[in-house]
Write a protein that binds this DNA or RNA. Structure first.
Lengths: 160, 160
DNA sequence: CCTCGTTCGACAACCAGGTTTACCGTTTGG
DNA sequence: CCAAACGGTAAACCTGGTTGTCGAACGAGG
């Protein structure tokens, strides 16, 4: 009760909420903008997947390993991506079992736009907080986050 | 190329990853600890739901509104919570349509333990970063996060 | 050269969580 | 007093996962 000014005690439960809200607002803004730029169907999970496919393409099994899910789940994701025109499967001449998943030009475009938009969003934060302070936040998070949590399998985690 | 020291340029895509990783590591640690303290079955989504039920109880419809999902989805969540012994339904004497969902003592315990654990986890971060710096991170996030993103419907958002 | 183990892709059945649509019973207000 | 609004439930379906199983293709050994 001593200092009603300047947000008193910080409670433990606020921290995860703030982090999540920050993540969420970035992702929401990204997808809003992405939708206006010709990619209305992209969902957060697809972003992770396309990132994992990359410009060289991967097999479904390898994609599963990168995303931390089973090859079956990865295969289903590729199906949806393919249905939306973001990826396609092509047989591999060398190994008749393999089918390489590759991003279509449309997929590559979505990825490139996302990267640019993330830069813009970060710049907005920097405008509010100052580059200095934003940097401090990033550095702090990097110090406190175990690198084991720093992977590309967000989609899998979310679905628990 | 001027300063290879001190983590060069920060890229836009790192920010959401850092925020998510931070959130994720807190939630993972919470549930690991929770499991060791007699609540192995609790999943992140249940945490949101139990928080929304609160100590007074709510109807399924109201729960749905709080969580940002349909009443049907809320009802299913209550089913799972009830199956695990964290919540129970009771008829309301006044309005024969209503069935109030209440936390069981076990549910209340899970909620209380979670709150305590979140305090512990925040304290760990404070030990690494310093209370000062952690506070700066929290304040920065609060400034930059639109309060509209600061809701209790995380579960619904995750499932897209 | 042929077989054995491993890998890749696909299929089926299932679970968690969400959505629509639809219906029934209760409560309430014009 | 009756119709509209509200609470609960159920069915069918979607997205993302999971196991388990299977056949086809590769690769290393005998």
């Amino acid at each position: 009760m001593a200092e009603p000014e300047r947000a008193g005690e910080r409670h433990g439960f606020e921290l995860p909420l703030l982090l999540f809200a920050g993540f969420r607002s970035l992702i929401d803004q990204l997808h809003t903008e992405l939708a206006e730029r010709g990619h209305p169907g992209v969902r957060p999970a697809y972003g992770f997947a396309m990132q994992a496919i990359g410009r060289d393409g991967v097999t479904a099994s390898e994609l599963g390993r990168r995303l931390g899910v089973t090859k079956q789940a990865a295969g289903k994701t590729v199906d949806r991506l393919a249905a939306l025109g973001y990826a396609e499967r092509a047989g591999d001449g060398v190994d008749a079992r393999r089918k390489v998943v590759r991003l279509t030009p449309r997929g590559v475009d979505a990825l490139a736009q996302s990267a640019a938009l993330f830069e813009d969003l970060r710049a907005e934060w920097a405008a509010t907080l100052g580059e200095e302070r934003l940097r401090e936040v990033e550095d702090a998070l990097e110090r406190v986050v175990p690198k084991s949590a720093f992977r590309l399998d967000g989609g899998a985690w979310l679905a628990g």
